[in-house]
């Protein structure tokens, strides 16, 4: 148990398809690890206590608050941040394309968390109603758009992802 008692630990995980290994303080959140150690500043920090949703990332495909997870808890996991959503550098993901088209972002602070939350949701619920979309983003605060464009973009992206439009 002796090495268990340390204040820093080695973490191995895969971030946006790239294997990463680092020694991190055990109290470092996954969000700070992504932003400060890996320079992936697309993941935003609004509140750092779970309320705003800006820091949401995918861990093994599940949307989680990266401010409420320790970096050391990502050992062995695959993490996807907003930087890893698009298939390549010139193509946007259909959800990103729909966000741009519908003006579903203005300042963009909430967008990374919106996209990651919606990506997992659309995997589970490929044909959602507008009401279901409103409920799933209820934990993501947006101070700019008024949410309506985000709902519209998600409905359209869901159709594209189903291959229907």
């Amino acid at each position: 148990m002796s090495e268990d008692r340390s204040l820093a630990r080695r973490v191995n995980c895969v971030v946006n398809g790239t294997a990463q290994a680092a020694e991190v303080s055990v109290r470092r959140t996954l969000a700070d690890y992504l932003r400060q150690d890996l320079g992936l500043t697309g993941t935003h920090l609004g509140c750092e206590h779970g309320v705003c949703g800006a820091c949401t990332v995918l861990v093994d495909g599940r949307a989680v608050r990266s401010c409420l997870m320790l970096a050391v808890q990502a050992e062995g996991c695959a993490v996807t941040t907003v930087e890893g959503i698009a298939p390549d550098v010139v193509t946007l993901h259909p959800l990103q394309t729909a966000f741009a088209k519908h003006h579903a972002l203005q300042c963009g602070f909430c967008t990374p968390g919106m996209l990651t939350t919606l990506l997992e949701f659309l995997e589970e619920v490929p044909a959602p109603t507008a009401e279901e979309i409103r409920i799933v983003i209820s934990g993501n605060l947006c101070r700019c758009t008024g949410y309506e464009p985000i709902v519209a973009a998600t409905l359209e992206a869901a159709a594209v992802m189903r291959g229907g439009a």
């Binding site: 599940r62 949307a63 989680v64 608050r65 409420l68 997992e120 799933v136 209820s138 934990g139 993501n140």
Partner: peptide, 12 residues
């Protein structure tokens, strides 16, 4: 369960 917090909090 739908009344508990939000989706990305319920995953953990």
């Amino acid at each position: 369960v739908r009344h508990i917090a939000h989706w990305p909090i319920r995953t953990r």
